[in-house]
């Protein structure tokens, strides 16, 4: 009871703070300086149609590298934490069998989900989406495989190979930008091409595809380590 009162008091204070913020807030009517810079310079400088992607991959590329690293660390820790409590030799009793229709459906739909993921991260510089969304969609494809066959064994070797190769190439492209273009993760090591074409915006599609593979592999390894908390 006392706990609830304390919580409510805290929240009331926070709510007052929020109310003050809300009442003082005036929506902008024009872009601020940095946003204006991005809006004006993205197309001529980087050749990317999606300005959000340009910010994530190039202008703030270092942050993105950090975020991918955070994801990698959390996937690793999930694997470690779950491996500690792995129960061996217990066949889970009373599992409901998978219906035939779900099996067939997953065999039919998984390739399509993976293809959609590939589309989303390859087209990251043209359409909404990119490596993070595409990676999540790839992991959803893996999730469908797992739902259709709960005892399926995933190849950890393949997942971590994809993960680390994508990471290595990502950093290598960043360093190539340092050598041949303006700085770390500069996308102008490849020709910019025409705005709106698939092969354009320099290295952005390549980098975002690598991020997509890496994020997909990280989520897939989380799913695999969850699924293998019980080994047969």
């Amino acid at each position: 009871m006392i706990k609830r009162v304390i919580a409510l008091t805290l929240l009331a204070g926070l709510g007052l703070l929020f109310l003050g913020l809300l009442l003082d807030y005036r929506p902008d009517t024009d872009l601020n300086l940095s946003a204006r810079y991005y809006a004006e310079r993205t197309a001529p400088d980087l050749g990317a149609a999606n300005i959000v992607t340009a910010i994530v991959v190039t202008y703030r590329g270092l942050d993105t590298l950090g975020e991918v690293t955070v994801l990698f660390l959390s996937a690793t820790i999930v694997g470690l934490v779950l491996a500690l409590g792995r129960r061996r030799g217990q066949a889970p009793a009373g599992l409901a069998p998978v219906g035939e229709l779900l099996t067939t459906g997953s065999r039919m739909l998984t390739p399509l989900i993976l293809l959609l993921g590939a589309y989303v991260f390859v087209n990251g510089h043209l359409t909404p989406g990119g490596g993070f969304q595409g990676g999540a969609i790839l992991a959803s494809g893996i999730l469908l495989l797992l739902l259709a066959d709960p005892l399926r064994h995933f190849s950890h070797g393949l997942i971590s190979a994809v993960e680390s190769l994508a990471g290595v190439f990502y950093v290598a492209i960043g360093l190539a930008g340092l050598v041949w273009a303006g700085g770390f993760l500069d996308n102008r090591i490849l020709p910019l091409g025409d705005l709106g074409a698939l092969f354009s915006a320099g290295a952005i599609p390549v980098i975002y595809s690598l991020i997509g593979l890496k994020v997909g592999a990280e989520f897939a390894s989380m799913l695999a380590s969850l699924a293998e908390t019980e080994e047969l």
Partner: peptide, 12 residues
């Protein structure tokens, strides 16, 4: 996509 996923989820 809707035609192929919607009945499947309903059936499951």
């Amino acid at each position: 996509f809707i035609l192929s996923t919607n009945p499947l989820s309903a059936q499951v």
